[in-house]
Write a protein that binds this DNA or RNA. Structure first.
Lengths: 220, 220
DNA sequence: AAATAAATTTAGACAAATCTAAAAAATATA
DNA sequence: TATATTTTTTAGATTTGTCTAAATTTATTT
């Protein structure tokens, strides 16, 4: 099946959104894609017709296996090109996204195979995001517990060890969720508690036992 | 000024056609682009509005200086990518054209500057065609068509005039590519066909119409 | 020069992707 | 529960790039 650049952008956006919630909603896609809800609805009908989306009107939607597979293909291309732009052409990592957005729609499987070989089959892109392999398998990252993270390194929350209501409630209060960017600004050796800085929020203190349950990884 | 991929394809087509005739005509563009004359007319109006084309209805048309400059920019991108595909990714030179057709529309000047540096500022692409520099200057190489080459002079193939799949397939069969060393051993005046000797291969016969499309140069 | 042929343009239609404004459905609130 | 709000969808318009078929202009032939 062939997809236009526009369709591919929607597929990618839906894929990313459904990583953090069971069903995706129209406004969320419209917001991330800087388009309007009506345009999203139009595209949903098209993607449903192409059988890569589970969708019933007013009920939310998500990619099916076919759709996820295609999304991973696009993400693979995007991240391989980002790797190329930084490692081979010498771009700064914060300049590459819009160029990779264009390159990811070039449709030649052989091109991607050869590019991947040429780059040495890299597992992570310059933002630290994993590059899916040709079958859509995603390498998983060395993640570490927040209580052993060195000071001042900016990291992203990748998982939470304890998912009790109490823990989740507290994390919500601290504005911490999967993907939240944060860094440790101080470590108190008295009790192992940490002062942390969550992006856009004032510093706060968390206990060692909470920190032990927050897993993070480097980069974006 | 920004141009869509479609507009760029027309610009490129018109540029190539006006290399061999003063004014370009609608049907010629339609034929090379596999589209219809009416579509060409529509686009001519648009390109005239964008002030890169001299055009009066029923009278033929050609790119003005602005238009030629833009055409050379697209050709530069196309040929740099072709060089990349062959020299870095290891593609066969007869497989790269459709991929470069897509890559040439990626619009980042910095990307092309960095790609050019990375490739070592090459002057000719893998088909032997000159790569315009960032100001649109085209490097020249004294080359001549094989059908007027004197007998027994050893030369190198520098370009191929007709890049159709059929032509490229035939050249492959004869073991002829860019850089191939060869000489003309006989010329039959009956039909203008030639016997040629390709380095390391047995002599073979090619027709005048094929020879006309093979351009060669002396030494390196 | 008139008739014929070829090239070019216009008129009108269509598909893709988007939009605005209004209607409909779902959700939240008083 | 009735009302208000938010979310989602529909209806209809717009832009870009394309097409066919018919009309127009130019070129070619008798």
């Amino acid at each position: 099946m062939n997809f236009s650049s526009s369709e591919e952008n929607y597929i990618k956006s839906i894929y990313h959104l459904q990583q953090s919630c069971e069903l995706v909603n129209t406004n969320a896609v419209a917001a991330t894609m800087h388009t309007r809800a009506a345009s999203v609805t139009d595209m949903l009908k098209k993607l449903k017709r192409k059988k890569i989306l589970q969708y019933e009107r007013y009920k939310g939607f998500k990619l099916n296996e076919q759709g996820k597979k295609h999304a991973l293909g696009i993400i693979r291309k995007h991240r391989l090109w980002e790797y190329f732009l930084v490692e081979k052409l010498g771009f700064a990592w914060d300049k590459i996204h819009p160029i990779a957005e264009e390159l990811e729609h070039i449709c030649s499987d052989e091109l991607i195979t050869k590019l991947n070989d040429y780059l040495g089959n890299p597992a992570f892109d310059p933002h630290g995001d994993p590059i899916p392999d040709q079958h859509g398998r995603i390498p998983n990252r060395k993640q570490l517990s927040l209580n052993i993270l060195p000071l001042k390194q900016t990291v992203k929350v990748s998982a939470v060890g304890n998912q009790s209501t109490q823990m989740l409630e507290m994390l919500k209060h601290y504005h911490i969720g999967i993907g939240t960017q944060l860094s440790v600004t101080k470590r108190f050796s008295f009790d192992g508690s940490l002062e942390i800085k969550v992006l856009k929020f004032p510093n706060c203190i968390i206990s060692a036992s909470v920190a032990k349950n927050i897993f993070v990884h480097h980069d974006k």
